[in-house]
Design a protein around this nucleic acid. Structure first.
Length: 556
RNA sequence: GCGCCUGUAGCUCAGCGGAUCAGAGCAUCGGACUUCGGAUCCGAGGGUCGGGGGUUCGAAUCCCUCCGGGCGCGCCA
């Protein structure tokens, strides 16, 4: 790859300068190789001299000059290397490097830019994992496209990715129990039995709907269940399958398929939670106090120790999370947790619990996405499962479309708060940027169809050297940069950058299209070359859309 | 009160391991050869990057502080 060649060139020049005594031997700082702001300034620009000027005790420009003098540019495909501005080293490359990128893209098709540096590293990626006590709403959903696409990116670079949804259905989950109590109350209410609706219970209509279904299916046989936590949990379990099935349906509607839906209850069924608690006690990572079992998370970066097992003997979620984490690390090299903002405060104790369990924290990554605010009529809508104020993810997906909905979520940086204006999303659906990208793809497909219809027959290899106008070069440049950009975005765990890359590619193509005629019977060689460029562009657009989980329409 | 995120053009947001980063889309206004899709392209206006201080030759970017917004701080998850 071109970047590696230039980096090597810089390094050898630096080594030579050090041998010549021009520069004191010092640590080579991380330098950046990026496109200069204007094409006429060259193809790549290095800030190496700027970055290390202070450490080297030299004026940046002088340092840059010294480095350039020690480069054999011609041997590395450079037509010119010059120092610019305060000390940038600008590389002008032979145009062939761009043509090579196009050829690479054509040769690799949908796999262009992909790699194997992941070396099969097994990544456990968990995302969404909403409490199974109601429909998935738009606030829970943000982790969906993020995790899904991040997984696709990692997979493209050779990681073995396992996508998982963790279902919090353990017998001691107070949310599940509260939901169960609400359901039980509605059930008894429908049957005219005495009931008491729990304080802060789930008020949504869907709870009554579930109760109605239970009555229709089983009659009054569940009246026998006790009105306590165990009875409530039993009620929860009566409808859990339906809730999870619905979650699965909605995620699928959103284009997300998990490799596994893991149930917390199974950890208990297997005795894994008790085993883990015993193990933590045995290793001294946990201790007993006031009748409860505490995990020494305070020694692992948390503010204080946390309760692992309540004084009444019921384990907390940390216990099952610790047990689950241990399970994960038996089969995976890296675990990425994608959590909602309401779990931000939980991160230190999660990491602490994992570390206390004996797992190296370098194998843990936690991404906390920021909130989604739903706007209706320009005003924020409070989302609360408990109060029954819910806009279902499925409603949104059906209204604005899967592609637009995914793109909308994906566009924003995961650290940014996201305003999802329902009315705007609906009204704007025609001008959503996703259509801009998809239109570029459809347009190219149209060109290809036209070429067939009009009998353009291209024989042999295209002569890519014919591609040299500014618009062509700009388009090739975007294609050439993709492998590096994909890696940078993946390393930064920043799927939102893909949306920018795709838009940039579409823009470069549309600009090219406006100034370059592709099909011309009077210039067959050029037509051939441009068809190759356009085909490469379509390949990359399709590949980018695929990684983002979006469709690549041939017609719109 | 403490912690995390955030404040960039009228709106929604990129850029945030410093310089060649003042950007995009939308909105507004004005244009586009009658052959490949106008869901496109070209152009214009518009911001002292929340305020203030500091580090630096150089800060939207790093540090401190203040102000505004969001979310967390349970033997809930």
């Amino acid at each position: 790859m071109i970047r590696q060649r230039l980096t090597a060139l810089l390094r050898s020049a630096l080594d030579q300068a050090q041998r010549d005594g021009i520069v004191d031997p010092c640590v080579t700082p991380e330098s950046d190789l990026s496109p200069p702001p204007r094409p006429d300034m060259g193809d790549f620009s290095s800030n190496l001299a700027l970055v290390m000027a202070r450490e080297a005790g030299m004026n940046p420009r002088a340092l840059a000059e010294a480095l350039v003098e020690r480069m054999d540019g011609a041997a590395h495909g450079c037509t010119r290397i010059e120092v610019a501005g305060p000390g940038f080293i600008n590389f002008h490359l032979e145009p062939g490097w761009l043509h090579q990128a196009v050829a690479d893209c054509l040769a690799h098709g949908m796999g262009y830019g992909h790699g194997s540096e992941g070396q099969g590293c097994r990544v456990h990626l968990e995302f969404v994992s909403a409490n199974p006590v109601g429909p998935i709403h738009i606030g829970n959903a943000r982790g969906g496209p993020y995790g899904d696409v991040l997984g696709n990116m990692l997979a493209a670079l050779g990681y073995r990715v396992h996508k998982e949804y963790y279902v919090n259905d353990g017998p001691h989950n107070t949310q599940a129990i509260l939901f169960g109590k609400s359901l039980q109350a509605r059930y008894r209410e429908l049957l005219g039995a005495p009931f008491s609706f729990p304080e802060n219970g789930y008020l949504g209509d869907y709870v009554t709907d579930f109760a109605r279904q239970l009555v229709a299916r089983d009659g009054d046989k569940h009246l026998a269940l006790p009105e306590d936590d165990e009875g409530a949990y039993a009620f929860f379990r009566l409808v859990e399958q339906d809730i999870v099935a619905e979650a699965r349906r909605v995620m699928s509607l959103f284009g997300i398929e998990y490799d596994n839906w893991f149930h917390e209850a199974d950890l208990y069924g297997a005795g894994a939670v008790d085993q883990e608690v015993q193990r933590l006690l045995a290793t001294g990572a946990a201790y007993t106090r006031d009748g409860a079992v505490w995990l020494r998370t305070g020694e692992h970066g948390d503010e204080e120790d946390r309760v692992l097992v309540r004084s009444d003997g019921r384990p907390t979620y940390i216990a099952s999370d610790a047990a689950y984490a241990l399970l994960k690390y038996r089969n995976f090299d890296l675990a990425i947790y994608v959590l909602g903002p309401d779990h931000a405060g939980y991160v230190p104790r999660l990491r602490a619990a994992i570390e206390a369990g004996g797992v190296d924290l370098s194998k843990v990554e936690v991404v906390v996405h920021q909130t989604v605010r739903l706007l209706r009529d320009g005003k924020p809508v409070r989302l609360s499962k408990r109060r029954g104020e819910i806009i279902g993810l499925d409603e949104v997906v059906e209204e604005v479309g899967r592609d637009a909905a995914r793109f909308f979520f994906l566009m924003r940086s995961i650290d940014s708060h996201l305003d999802f204006d329902l009315d705007l999303a609906k009204r704007q659906s025609d001008e959503n940027p996703v259509y801009y990208v998809q239109y570029a793809h459809a347009r190219i497909c149209s060109i290809i169809r036209t070429a067939e219809e009009r009998g353009f027959a291209f024989a042999g290899e295209p002569d890519l050297r014919l591609l040299n106008t500014p618009a062509e070069r700009a388009l090739m440049r975007v294609i050439a940069d993709y492998p590096h950009e994909l890696r940078a975005a993946t390393a930064a765990r920043a799927p939102h950058r893909l949306t920018t890359l795709a838009r940039d590619l579409a823009t470069a193509f549309h600009q090219f299209y406006a100034s370059c005629r592709v099909l011309d019977h009077d210039a067959m060689a050029l037509s051939h070359a441009r068809m190759a460029l356009v085909t490469a562009t379509r390949n990359l657009l399709a590949a980018e859309l695929a990684i983002m989980g979006l469709s690549a329409p041939e017609r719109m």
